[in-house]
Simulated scan of single mutants.
Amino acid sequence: MNPTAHSSPRLIFASSPPGVTVETSEIPVPGPNQLLVRNACTQVSAGSESNFLRHGPQSYGLPEGAQRANIGYMAVGRVVAVGRDVTGFRVGDRVTASAPHALHVVVDVNPSASIEQVPEGVTDESAGFVALGDVALHSVRRAGVQIDQSVAVFGLGMVGQLVLQFARISGAYPLIAIDLEDERLEMAKRSGATHCINASRENVVERIREITRGAGAEAVFHCAQAASILQTAMECAADRGSVVLTGSPPGNATIRLKEELLRKELTVTGTYEAGLTETHAYWRWSRSRNRRACLRLMATGELRLDHLLTHVVPVAQAPAIYQMVLQGSKGWLGIVFKWE
């Protein structure tokens, strides 16, 4: 990767054939309400980005007909130029922002901007994951997790691991982690899981009933990429418990209405955070407030990501990394690209 003085590398995603290439483009110029940031790291949102490669740009929310794009939404770097109307930021500030995989990015600064100052004590490698921390924390808030409330988390990718940690911080007990990979379950123990279940070897419903003395889990989080496990999640829930859809699984789910939803009076909640860019009287937890909470907890050591970062690699290795991700969930979890 040897860009010229006026060019900057970036990752370009294509879905036909699926793959990722490192290309260069002109360094962007910030407008009046924008910052130019030189990224040190960008973090991979494996679910969203692999959906682009598997199912096309529309699965990523891009318009019909777009076949190639510079995607991604987690980055950490330093401000190198400030638009004339921007206040609150200056050259040299270390920030985390919603920005694609690229060395140089422009970031809008407005009331809904996804950009935060990174405090001392938080590494570049961890800081970018506050975007997923925001998703996980919102989910735990919507579930209203309480001290000694039983929690089960299906799917121990990065979002599931973060949900587990926020439930731990909220005082939940027991904390039950469910996945198909022993490696991710071992990581879940370090995230705070009190019990781990490998769904490929054990009957999940029976094990959760055993752990909860027959009651079921009071809050069940669906953080997996398989839509079909919604029925199992409902079977694992306690009477009048909640099932919270936290991941973004593609496809459809089939559920029984009478046995679980009706008779157990379950609450099934989807979480997406649309329209939560600012606080209001009935929901004070804006996305920015969640991100700041994540960064504060990282700085104090209460929220830890170091054990979840399996690949911190130069961006030149990106094409091979995405091929690994497309092959399945074994052998990786938190992925960070270094741009320096």
Rank of each mutant, 00 (worst) to 15 (best):
Glu125Ala: 13
Glu125Pro: 05
Ser126Met: 09
Ala127Lys: 02
Ala127Pro: 02
Gly128Pro: 01
Gly128Ser: 03
Val130Leu: 11
Val130Pro: 00
Ala131His: 14
Leu132Ile: 12
Leu132Glu: 05
Gly133Lys: 05
Gly133Trp: 05
Asp134Pro: 02
Asp134Gly: 02
Ala136Gly: 03
Ala136Ile: 01
Ala136Cys: 06
Val140Gly: 02
Arg141Thr: 05
Arg142Leu: 09
Ala143Tyr: 00
Gly144Thr: 11
Val145His: 03
Gln146Leu: 11
Ile147His: 15
Asp148Val: 03
Gln149Lys: 10
Ser150His: 07
Ser150Asn: 03
Val151Met: 09
Val151Trp: 07
Phe154Pro: 01
Gly155Leu: 05
Leu156Pro: 00
Met158Pro: 06
Met158Lys: 12
Gln161Lys: 08
Leu162Arg: 09
Leu162Gln: 07
Val163Ala: 04
Leu164Phe: 11
Leu164Val: 05
Leu164His: 07
Ala167Cys: 14
Arg168Trp: 09
Ile169Met: 09
Ser170Gly: 08
Ser170His: 12
Gly171Lys: 10
Tyr173Pro: 00
Tyr173Trp: 15
Ile176Lys: 03
Ile176His: 01
Ile176Met: 02
Ile178Leu: 00
Ile178Val: 14
Ile178Ala: 00
Leu180Asn: 09
Glu181Lys: 13
Glu181Trp: 12
Asp182Pro: 01
Asp182Ser: 01
Glu183Gly: 08
Leu185Ala: 04
Glu186His: 15
Met187Glu: 06
Met187Thr: 05
Met187Phe: 09
Lys189Leu: 03
Gly192Phe: 09
Gly192Asn: 10
Gly192Pro: 08
His195Ser: 09
Cys196Thr: 15
Ile197Phe: 13
Ile197Glu: 06
Asn198Ile: 04
Ala199Glu: 01
Ser200Met: 08
Arg201Thr: 08
Arg201Gln: 11
Arg201Asn: 07
Glu202Thr: 12
Glu202Cys: 06
Asn203Thr: 12
Asn203Leu: 04
Asn203Pro: 08
Val204Ser: 07
Val204Asn: 07
Val204His: 12
Glu206Ile: 09
Glu210Asp: 15
Glu210Tyr: 14
Glu210His: 15
Ile211Thr: 07
Ile211His: 11
Ala217His: 07
Ala217Met: 01
Glu218Gly: 01
Ala219Asn: 06
Phe221Ile: 00
His222Leu: 13
His222Phe: 13
Ala224Trp: 08
Ala226Phe: 14
Ser228Trp: 11
Ser228Leu: 06
Ile229Ala: 06
Leu230Lys: 12
Ala233Met: 14
Ala233Cys: 14
Met234Tyr: 09
Met234Gly: 00
Glu235Leu: 10
Cys236Gly: 03
Ala237Phe: 04
Ala238Val: 01
Asp239Glu: 15
Asp239Asn: 14
Arg240Asp: 05
Gly241Tyr: 05
Ser242Met: 07
Val243Trp: 05
Val244Gly: 00
Thr246Trp: 03
Thr246Ala: 09
Thr246Val: 15
Pro249Ala: 04
Pro249Met: 04
Pro249Trp: 07
Asn252Tyr: 13
Asn252Cys: 07
Ala253Ile: 11
Thr254Val: 13
Ile255Arg: 01
Ile255Val: 13
Arg256Glu: 12
Arg256Gln: 14
Leu257Tyr: 15
Leu257Glu: 10
Leu257Phe: 15
Leu257Asp: 06
Leu261Thr: 10
